[in-house]
Structures are given as C-alpha cells and as structure tokens.
Amino acid sequence: MNKWSDNRAWWLVLPVVLIVAFSAVIPLMTVVNYSFQDTFGNNEFFWEGVGWFQEVLRSERFHSAMGRQFLFSFIILAIEIPLGIVIALAMPRKGFWVPFCLILMALPLLIPWNVVGTIWQIFGRIDIGLLGAFLDNIGVEYNYTQNTLDAWVTLVVMDVWHWTSLVVLLCYAGLQSIPDAYYQAARIDGASKWATFRYIQLPKMNRVLLIAVLLRFMDSFMIYTEPFVVTGGGPGNDTTFLSIDLVQMAIGQFDLGPAAAMSLIYFLIILLFSWVFFTIMSYLDRVEN
C-alpha cells in the first residue's frame, strides 16, 4: 500500500470535527472548566482544583438526592420490567387485535413529558382531580403535596403508566421473532406454560430485555420534567432527584462550580452503568456464538 504524503485530506475531516466540537466537546469542556474554578462574574476565574468535587461528594444534600435517585430507578425497573413482560406475553400474537393493542401501547409514549406531568398533577389533586377527589371522597387520605409516600406513589405510578409500554413493545418484538416451530416443538415435548416461558420465550427475549433495562435505567435516572411538574421536588426535598437538585443548584442558587462538579459526577455514573451493560451484552453475544 502506498501511503499518501499529501496531508490535505485532513480538511475532509474538518466538518465533522467542527460539528462534534460545537455540539459536544466545547459545552462539556465549559462544564469541566467551571468545575475546577470559581468565579464572581466579570469573567474572572480562580483555580479551585478538586475542591468542588470534594464538596459535592461530601455533602449530605448530594447523598440524599443520589439515594432517592437510585431508589426511584430501582422501583421503576422492579415494576416496569416484569409488568412489561407479562403484558407482552398476554398480547395476541396475530389477528385483528394486534394493531389495536400496539396503538394502545404506543399512546403513552407519544405524550410529551411535561404534559404527562400536568395530566397527573391535575389527576391527583384532591380538589378537582379525578383520582385525588375520588380517593378523598371514599375516605382515603391522599395528598401528594404533603405526604411523602403519596408523592412517591404518584410519581412511580405515573412513570409506570408512561413508560411500561416501551418495555412491552420491546418484549413483544422479541416474542414475535420466535418462529412458530418453537412453540410447536414445546407442545410436542410436553412443555408446561412455565417451561415454555423459561426455556423459549425468556432466552429469546434476553437481548431486548437488556436494552429495555438499560433504557429504563438511564431514563429514570435522568428523570426531571415529570416530578418537577407534579411535585416540584417536594414535599420538602423528598422527591428531589439528582437532576432537580442540579437545576436548583445551577439556576436557582447560581452555584456554578458545585453544579458543574455534580454534572460531571452524574454523567460519569450514567456512563459507568452504560459501560457495564454494554460489557454484559457483548459478553452474552460471545457466549452465544
């Protein structure tokens, strides 16, 4: 092979470099810049080193927001993944009702996030909300603005309502890719419903399930709009998740240094989890082949 001695070909890479620079690298580096320095305006900066990181990592506020965030993601996954599988299994495999079910499932996914928040905010209000007023009238004490448990239940139910469909659709796609012969063979081999699920359906779904877990983890870990609209992080700070906390810090209090440090930590956590998932997925791929 002849090597090109002409370096003008580098110009061809320039557009991509520019796009990536302006859309990702420069904004991210700005955040990095803020995270290591302090400023009092006038574009004057003072070197802080890892001070902001230490402050964030040691702060009680960050710890509790992080704890709430993990708890929320865990509850979401623990409900949405099994529920999604069950619904996908219950959906008809073919026939008249398939498009109907698919549209029904897709509907919640099409609603903008702040609209979902608004729907549930109103739905749960005890004065005019259908759910809130109904519960109030039958004597159930329910008030998501004052009771922590009620606020959490409302947010979890809202997220399940909004996002279980995604898991359902992914699982359904996985199930549809199983040839009929597998079910016929299972019947001939005398497999029970559970054995069919355990040895045919679940193995064929494992790839899509990993994607579903990854997507739902990332999305729920970054959740902002819906809880912000419904509870605003309250009562107190009881539903203040990481992103809500971050926005309060950066925009409410204008603490750019700690906010930048927290952004990077937040980003690294998500990156770490995505990497772990990716590693597991490619490992499973290798095992299968």
Binding site: Y182, Q184, Y199, I200
Partner: peptide, 13 residues
C-alpha cells in the same frame, strides 16, 4: 408423536 421441523429447534440455554 414427535416432529422434526425444517429449521432445527433447540433450547438455546
């Protein structure tokens, strides 16, 4: 009865 299909059906796991 037993049946062998066009494409091999095995339990992957």
């Amino acid at each position: 009865i037993a049946q062998v299909f066009q494409f091999p059906v095995i339990y992957d796991t």
